[in-house]
Structures are given as structure tokens and as C-alpha cells.
Computed example of a mutant assay.
Amino acid sequence: MKTIKVVAAIIIENGNVFATQRGYGEFKDGWEFPGGKVEANETPEDALVREIKEELDTEIEVLELLDTVEYDYPKFHLSMECFICKMKSGDLILKEHEAAKWLTKETLDSVDWLPADEGLIGKIEEYLGRN
């Protein structure tokens, strides 16, 4: 099975977490943490900064690795490094996503997460509880 290596930004501002809804492809309408594929000769952190600039016209600071999710979709294996991030500048303009919202610790499970992202919710709740 082919492995796709991606990165995801868990953008946290004032205790709220930014979530995006896919506007395209096989997983259209599912909710996810924004990010994308890591290109050759790119660190995961550099890939994440680039992807968020491209997708959301926003500069982020990557703070720490929260988790690496390994998930088997029917057609591929996803390896997703998920980083806690904060905004440096920009307005989170949706260029590829259908919708977005800020979620609180209490509302994190109120959207229909894609399977790989869903596994992060408990860890994000723990992180928010500590910080």
C-alpha cells in the first residue's frame, strides 16, 4: 500500500482550535486540520509553514509536535505529523476549503472529522487542559 506523508497544523488561538472543511476530492465535506504533503528536501515544519501560506494566506509559527498519526485509508496509508501552531500574521483566508470554524475544547467533537484527524481530538483536549 502506498504511504502518503503529510503534515497538519493544529492552530490554537485563545484556547480555540481552527478546523477546516474539505472542499474537494474523495473526502469532500469532511473536517480536518489544515496542511498538506511534505515535498522532497523539506522538513515537516517547513512544509507546514508553506502549506498554510498557500491554503490560508497566513503565516504560522510551529511550536511543537503533538502526535504522528498512522492511518490506513482504503487506497493508501497516511502518515501525518501534527503540530501545535500559532498565527504570526494573516487572516486565515480559505483558498481550498469549503468552510472553517474555531472550536473550543467543549465543541471539538461537534464536526464530522475525517478518520485520521478524529484520532487527535482526545490529545488536543488534553493539550488544551494543560495549557
Rank of each mutant, 00 (worst) to 15 (best):
M1C: 07
K2H: 07
K2C: 08
T3K: 06
I4L: 14
I4S: 11
V7Q: 03
A8C: 13
A8R: 10
A8W: 09
A9Q: 08
A9C: 13
I12L: 12
N14W: 12
G15N: 11
G15T: 11
N16A: 11
N16C: 12
V17Q: 10
V17T: 09
V17M: 12
F18A: 03
F18Y: 06
A19W: 00
R22F: 06
G23L: 12
G23K: 15
G23S: 14
G25Q: 10
E26S: 11
E26M: 12
K28M: 05
D29L: 11
D29V: 10
W31C: 10
E32A: 14
F33M: 09
F33A: 04
F33K: 05
P34N: 07
G35W: 07
G35R: 10
V38P: 01
E42G: 07
E42W: 11
E42M: 11
T43F: 04
T43N: 02
T43H: 02
P44K: 08
D46Y: 11
D46N: 12
L48G: 06
L48T: 11
V49L: 14
V49Y: 13
E51D: 07
E51Y: 09
I52M: 09
I52V: 10
K53G: 08
E54M: 01
E55W: 04
E55C: 04
E55V: 03
D57S: 14
E59S: 13
L65Q: 14
L65G: 14
L66V: 02
T68N: 05
T68Y: 03
V69R: 06
V69P: 02
V69M: 06
V69Q: 05
E70S: 15
Y71M: 11
D72M: 15
K75Q: 15
K75A: 14
F76R: 11
H77C: 06
S79P: 07
E81A: 07
E81S: 11
C82S: 05
I84C: 00
I84T: 00
C85L: 03
K86T: 02
K86R: 03
M87Q: 14
M87N: 12
S89T: 04
G90E: 00
D91P: 12
L92N: 01
I93R: 08
L94P: 13
L94N: 15
K95A: 10
K95W: 01
K95G: 10
K95S: 08
E96G: 14
H97C: 07
E98I: 09
A99H: 09
A99V: 07
K101D: 02
W102I: 04
W102R: 03
W102K: 03
L103C: 15
T104G: 02
T104P: 00
T104R: 00
K105I: 03
E106V: 04
E106T: 06
L108D: 04
V111P: 08
V111F: 05
V111N: 09
D112N: 12
W113R: 05
L114Y: 14
P115R: 14
P115T: 12
A116I: 05
A116V: 09
D117F: 13
D117L: 14
D117P: 13
G119V: 02
I121S: 00
I121G: 01
K123W: 04
E125F: 11
E125C: 07
E125T: 10
Y127R: 02
Y127H: 06
L128E: 00
R130C: 08
R130A: 08
R130H: 05
